[in-house]
Design a binder for these strands. Structure first.
Lengths: 236, 236
DNA sequence: GTTTTTGCACTGACCAGTCAGTTCAAAAAT
DNA sequence: ATTTTTGAACTGACTGGTCAGTGCAAAAAC
């Protein structure tokens, strides 16, 4: 209710006034570090992310209840609201968190290839692999992300767009450098090609996880590499 | 049947017991053929499909209410339940309807290419175009389909799998024929490659519709053709 | 002693599905 | 030709249940 006002008001009257729901904690908090180095709070949030991501991937956002999330995370419902302002906010931060991991991973793959003196096709290939590794590790997140990406009229729409662009931009960057360096035709449509490549990996990987989960990552990677490098047409 | 309804009824009840809710009518009913040739019922169902597809694409299944669907279709809520057993059933039949259209379109593209004596790459290219045409015409359906495809634990899961397989099988068929005829390497992974191709078109097309809607279909098709035929690497 | 979590009762909005009743055009009866 | 009947199609107020979010005192963790 008036939690916003209470949160905005700095301490002072700690008599009976304050539920003081801290919606957002500062990064430099002095909150005691646990043996693990993380704050207790962070650990709880992580548990909630993990619970939410699988449930929402399976059922969708609206069909997943806060009670379910709390139960699977093994915490009380009140704890969810102590840590997140609302169900939507929990979801939004989960999206940011997840795509952040992916983007970092893609970027690292591209940079590492460059350092090793690989060409742009190598970089693309490394990013395909990084994408597969990510999806292999976080299949539920991927599922949920795909399900939400092209929706409209949702609260977290803008968050999603920002975060999507960060990830796709990494691919576009490699394509652009490839064109500038003469390795790729300058007639390619960078934006559309980037989207198509992402789609290729995304859908192939989801197909892999859904229908042929026994196959190895290397195996799947090899099949996609072949397609990427145009080694499909032409027998042998 | 609960006693509540009977208790609330003031009197003068009808003789026969049955409320007789006809969920499904026989095809040879005396259902009046309207001027359009379609039955009234069919027209109503079509309106409901159209209303449901956009709403669910925007908001998702659970977040879309039956009241909303009825309102947008311009019918009363009861009419929805007169025509469909439940909200899920409406959605399920909508899925079947839509994917049926896509599958037919893909099949036609492949067959027509074969008739014209085209090779398998031509067939693939024609199917890419057919996919784009479909998405161009039914963007909301596509959106909704992608959002639901990899979910688990949902009532319509099995329906979706069946219908997905029908569509993907068309692509797999062309790839298989291509391998058998020596046009494609026999080392390609048919299932995974088909999924990747579908993903390429799907994601590129959704990107097109979402972020560059002003571009023409031909333009987008050209970009994907280039990628499909491996004309990306290699300057010029 | 401060922060975080718990447990649980509570509220109010919202929503899927129901059902008694209405409409109306075609069929049957007159 | 006119009236009556029929029943598929449709209507919308209503119900029973669900769920996001609240409030708070006490416990646990730090």
């Amino acid at each position: 209710m008036t939690s916003a006002a209470a949160a905005a008001r700095p301490g002072g009257d700690s008599v009976s006034a304050g539920p003081t729901v801290p919606v957002r904690i500062g990064t430099m908090e002095r909150s005691s570090a646990t043996p693990g180095g993380r704050t207790r709070r962070e650990a709880t949030r992580q548990k909630l992310y993990e619970a939410a991501v699988t449930l929402i991937a399976e059922q969708g956002f609206s069909a997943t209840t806060v009670d379910e999330i709390a139960e699977r995370a093994g915490v009380a419902k009140g704890t969810v609201y102590y840590n997140f302002a609302s169900k939507s906010v929990l979801f939004e931060e989960l999206l940011r968190h997840g795509v952040g991991l992916l983007t970092a991973s893609l970027r690292e793959a591209a940079e590492e290839t460059a350092l090793r003196g690989g060409n742009k096709v190598d970089a693309l290939d490394a990013m395909v692999r990084a994408g597969l590794v990510f999806i292999d590790r976080y299949p539920a997140f991927t599922q949920l992300y795909v399900a939400e990406l092209w929706r409209t009229n949702r609260a977290w729409q803008s968050t999603l767009m920002v975060v999507r662009q960060e990830a796709v931009a990494v691919v576009e960057g490699v394509l652009r450098e490839g064109v500038e360096g003469g390795e790729f035709s300058d007639e390619i449509d960078i934006q559309l090609t980037a989207a198509a490549l992402v789609g290729m990996v995304l859908v192939a990987a989801l197909d892999w996880k859904s229908f042929q989960p026994e196959r190895s990552l290397d195996d799947v990677h090899a099949a996609l590499s072949r397609l990427l490098q145009g080694r499909v047409s032409g027998a042998r």
